[in-house]
Amino acid sequence: MLEIDGISKRFGSTVALDRMTFTVHPGELFGFVGANGAGKTTTMRIALGVLAADAGEVRLDGRPLDAVSRRRIGYMPEERGLYPRMAVGTQLRYLAELRGRSAADARAAADRWTERLGLTERRGDEVQRLSLGNQQRVQLAAALVADPDVLVLDEPFSGLDPVAVDVMSDVLRERRDAGAPVVFSSHQLELVERLCDRVGIVRAGRAVAEGTVDELRAASASELVVVAPAAPTGWADHLSGVTGSRAAEGGIVLTLADTSEATLAGVLDAARRTGPVHEFRRRRPALAEIYRGTVAGRTEPAGHGVAA
């Protein structure tokens, strides 16, 4: 279990992180989303010991991370980088050994991951002679080659071709299924929604929402889609429990103050009084919408700890 507990970081007068807190459980794929500059990369760098936090603590399985336990983390930095003039195989073995693997383990792991990622033919080539796509694969292999117990990946999908995205998704699921806590950041919200068990949304250095996509949905405003072709404009404006409405999705979308039986029954009855009702359903907002609502709509980080 990877716990980020109240870490703060300032760069000069800029507050990069303000008591950032979230938890990634074993066997869980955690998506870390937020605007550029919200503090995702800084959080990961601190977790990896590349930066020092001003306050707070990062714990792995209940113990504060130190130089030794950090080697159990597989890391892909946002700023991709490898030794350009080092051969792929040698480089992977070197990085595995730096993380404490024996020479034999390192060799076996380097061979295994180059094969898995389709780089077998490239083992002897210098990294700088590889195509950008293959360099990305080597970068992923570099994060995995030390057989890490935890994965922390900063924007692992950026710059990948569709095939590589599939390979990357498979690998992440596989590690998750093997019981590793896996956390990655991404701007591709559809991907995060599809892939992640839980999601954390950050804004201005704080985690403003954390939970499964369904939990986040439940916490965001409840909406109801009603398609009643014969209904006059504004038919639902003054119903009890309805706080707003807009025309969308072929009918109107109502924002509800609560989802009690009484409110729902009141809306349905009102709709039926206008004529035929073709559709009446709870709306499931996409993660992208929840994200926009969370990041843009709140000045107070009220969603903090929704399901934490």
Binding site: P77, G81, L82, L95
Partner: peptide, 14 residues
């Protein structure tokens, strides 16, 4: 070279 190729971040995480 380590700085410009950014590999230093991976190395320093180890």
């Amino acid at each position: 070279e380590e700085k410009s190729s950014r590999v230093v971040e991976i190395v320093l995480s180890s």
